[in-house]
């Protein structure tokens, strides 16, 4: 209770950018608490990710040992797959954390309290997005660290700065996609979460995470062009495998910048529409 409130008057809590930014940190703090409390699940998922990634990289090793390429080519395939697994782990973490922001709260039964709190939806998303990026980076760094112990990786020619730019810009469009996906559990309380999972699975399939998109059937290739992961992976591989200078990464940076500029505001607008729809139809109510 606010003991300073006198009997004469009560001032309404403030608003404004600074107030909203501070309030948005609530989501970062809360998710850190949740990660700490669910540490056993986090550990299990990390082990699953590491095991999956290593399996994929060993497929690459086996392919090379069975005469699939020269010594230099062999190394490239392992690194090619390694970039795919680590970058996808990051993008998936960003997408999932944002995409599940409603589903998780609905499951816990807190969604109405969060929606009732005096914080703008933009600040809400900012907080969730900030945590998602930090969480994704830490998870991916741990994955990269473990993979580096088992596979020799030569990044002496890599353009690490360019790769970082690609990842940062790519994160924005993934946040936009995540926010769009987050609206699904608002509209479909019982099936929304599954739909979010389907979207991330399709992105995995069409974005060239483990193979060039040229191997996809013709009808599937257009889907790759609207997936930001396609350009992030192309750019990351160009920067890390070929050492392409940052200025020459334009063919990757431009589309993901456009996708980011388009998907983020569209995602926020769709979420706002979804929230109003849920409030008109009573779909915010606790379920699960």
């Amino acid at each position: 209770m606010n003991q300073s409130l006198g009997p004469a008057q009560r001032t309404l809590p403030g608003a404004g950018i600074w107030w909203e930014t501070r309030a948005s940190l609530a989501f970062v703090e809360r998710n850190l608490y949740l990660v700490r409390r669910y540490w056993h699940l986090e550990l299990a998922f990390l082990i699953f990710n590491v095991a999956s990634a290593m399996s994929v990289l060993y497929i690459g090793e086996a392919q090379m040992q069975s005469g699939g390429g020269t010594g230099e080519g062999r190394f490239d395939l392992v690194l090619y797959l390694g970039i795919g697994t680590v970058v996808w782990a990051y993008l998936r973490a960003v997408f999932s954390n944002v995409g599940e922001m409603v589903a998780w709260e609905r499951w816990e039964g807190t969604i109405e309290y969060t929606m009732m709190a005096p914080i703008s939806r933009l600040a809400h998303m900012l907080g969730v997005s900030l945590f998602s990026i930090v969480y994704g980076l830490i998870r991916s760094a741990l994955l990269l660290g473990v993979l580096a112990l088992f596979f020799s990786v030569d990044l002496s020619n890599a353009n690490l700065g360019g790769a970082a730019v690609i990842l940062l810009v790519g994160s924005i469009s993934f946040l936009g996609f995540g926010i769009m996906a987050a609206v699904l559990p608002l509209l479909f309380p019982e099936r929304g979460e599954e739909m979010t999972f389907v979207i991330s699975s399709i992105l995995l399939l069409v974005s060239g995470v483990y193979y060039p998109i040229s191997v996809l059937p013709d009808w599937m290739e257009p889907l790759a062009t609207i997936s930001p992961a396609t350009y992030v992976l192309e750019g990351m591989r160009a920067a890390l495998l070929d050492g392409t200078p940052t200025m020459a990464l334009g063919p990757s940076i431009l589309p993901i910048s456009i996708l980011g500029v388009v998907t983020l505001p569209i995602g926020i607008a769709i979420f706002g529409w979804g929230e109003r729809y849920a409030k008109r139809t009573g779909r915010l109510k606790r379920s699960g």
Partner: peptide, 26 residues
Amino acid sequence: RVSVEASFFKKLSPGENLAYALRLYG
């Protein structure tokens, strides 16, 4: 609002749940 079901993050402690809720209110 206080609703009939105490809606919280069940794995979090009262302290953590309240810290989250209060930060939302600045």
